[in-house]
Design a protein around this nucleic acid. Sequence first.
DNA 1: GCCAACGTTGGC
DNA 2: GCCAACGTTGGC
Length: 141
Amino acid sequence: MAYWLFKSEPDTWSWDQQKAKGMAGEEWTGVRNYQARNNMREMQLRDLGFFYHSNEGLEVVGIVEVCRLAHPDSSTDDPRWECVDIRAVRDMPNPVTLKDVKANPKLADMSLVTSMRLSVQPVRPDEWEEVCRMGGLVPAP
DNA sequence: GCCAACGTTGGC
DNA sequence: GCCAACGTTGGC
């Protein structure tokens, strides 16, 4: 069981849109970065992730679950790009902002801080725990 | 809207 | 295989 973080610009694909897809989930298309793609290839069914709003909001707004393993990205014919499907699991009771993350020394190594531009990131279990605690999700899922 | 960071491309 | 040019991301 691993933890991840998915970035999305709310103008393009928001948490509300993700939630509207319900249990069916949605393909996480559009990733054109090898490192992010490789992270998706590593994902297992039922792995959990944070849903983060970039550009606007700049906060973790919810929890998602991987509901389909990596497969070719249907938004391109380029066979290099793959993606998983994810579905919304629940809201963060109190969204955790990037500012909050940066202000917490326990989260200094988080990819969100150290690899700003990576759009699909791994999250360590201790980081998962801490962000959930900050967001009012105790115990962490 | 700006621009720093950084990944990718392409000439050599 | 190096590295300059270029394009994109994303915080501010």
